[in-house]
Design a protein around this nucleic acid. Structure first.
Lengths: 252, 252
DNA sequence: TTGCCAAATTCATCTAGACGACTAGTTATC
DNA sequence: GATAACTAGTCGTCTAGATGAATTTGGCAA
């Protein structure tokens, strides 16, 4: 608490060496204080690794470790060749019985978008088959899409439909990319989300790539079961969200 | 890049050097394949960093980077001084209007537990005050607790009660650690969760410490608003869950 | 002005080596 | 037999230096 009054320059935070607290942790804390203390505003550029290394009198790798930590915690964003910046902006993603991506996004005056990554028919894996309530190995139509908000990727959604009932979906999606519309054409006028499981983990290389998000930022993983008005399972969707760009909202 | 033929044993997966894919990523993939391929069962011990470094013919640091990745993704668990192990077991945490930790846990035949970390009365910060619907700076009672399942920490919950109405809570909790009971004593026979916001990030040092979870594993952060039967806001709770040990379940 | 190339800047990866911290088992001692 | 001290094994942190990759900048040519 004593904390020498830093008059003027940010000269010597002076790390405590050899006292049980790793240097990179101390740097993390210091930077955190400075960021949340408003030293740098949202989106502001932080000093380069080399500068910070000099300032804290440590090796650049030690600074890197600290910055990676801050990135994973959501405080900063690191861009190769550009520098590090203070993080910003999140989208509210409301989870309810009627969860439709475009509607949610438009309601927040943002522009939804997306593209199909993959459409194929494959035999059902054990997990998916159990959730769909079909036998393992039975054919399922898998549709994978990347959804964007204002041009920035927000989520990767992988839908699994029982092919027996929804085999026409691949063709239908070629006409109209809307899944809701395709389901209508298959005789499902409406559907609702029955249950959602949520967890979090770090992204795979592919995920962080598609989501244009750092490897250190977690993805929120949701597994949803959608049912038609009759209660029949329509599909199982596994979605991976860029945690740094959104917040799920559950109302009850 | 000629790639010597690996005769016999798992000697040479032989990484592709200098072809745009980082070595640590390739190691990650290989280990992932071996783990999900059943090479090592759940809980099984993996080779030491030194062994893997030798096997892949890279520096130990490179193997470390790969293992940290797998840990963050939830595939392995690394323990200092002991080794690395394949990950396991998760708890289903059902989120609904009536979310009570002990009930949820007991319903899964597990043993809930916990301890109070902090109880104090402080002026309301901007965010909390807004959510509670009180003026900033007004006193709030903050109760922070660590909740356990079968002796393992699952979540850190920070409750914020408007002190005006719930000033007696600190004393009450000294008698009986149940928050539900304390609220009853304050004239709130029942309460329900109105809205929950969920996001994920990497834990702070303190969080990973309390949750006994690696720094690389994300925490699910939920911000809940609880209201009494009259719709009045009772408290705002911010909980941080060890993402590797649970899955939130939302029914709708 | 526009387009392109080269240099400079900055972050990313990899290697090498040293030492600290924690765990678990073994041995010495009382 | 209990306890303490030691030791080997394993992960954690830090330093140092080299090279690669992505981005920006500045200058030159069309």
């Amino acid at each position: 608490m004593t904390d020498a009054g830093d008059m003027g320059m940010k000269s010597g935070p002076l790390l405590a060496r050899g006292e049980g607290v790793a240097l990179w942790r101390q740097i993390t804390q210091q930077m955190e204080r400075e960021i949340s203390g408003g030293q740098y505003g949202p989106g502001a550029r932080l000093p380069t690794e080399a500068e910070l290394a000099e300032r804290f009198a440590v090796n650049r790798h030690t600074v890197r470790r600290a910055m990676e930590e801050l990135e994973g915690r959501g405080l900063v964003r690191i861009e190769q060749g550009r520098g590090s910046f203070v993080a910003e902006d999140v989208v509210d993603y409301r989870l309810g019985p009627r969860t439709r991506f475009s509607e949610i996004i438009r309601r927040q005056n943002r522009e939804p978008g997306g593209r199909v990554l993959r459409i194929e028919e494959v035999p059902a894996e054990a997990t998916i088959a159990d959730l769909l309530g079909i036998r393992r190995g039975r054919p399922v139509v898998v549709v994978e899409r990347l959804s964007l908000v204002d041009g920035r990727p927000l989520l990767i959604g992988t839908h699994h439909f029982p092919a027996l009932r929804f085999g026409r979906i691949p063709e239908l999606l070629k006409e109209d990319p809307s899944i809701t519309a395709a389901l209508v054409a298959c005789g499902v006028p409406d559907y609702r989300r029955k249950v959602t499981r949520i967890t979090a983990r770090l992204p795979t290389a592919e995920e962080s790539d598609l989501l244009q998000q750092s490897r250190n930022r977690p993805v929120l993983v949701s597994e949803a079961i959608n049912v038609d008005p009759a209660g029949e399972v329509v599909d199982v969707t596994i979605a991976r969200y860029a945690a740094g760009r959104m917040q799920m909202v559950v109302e009850s």
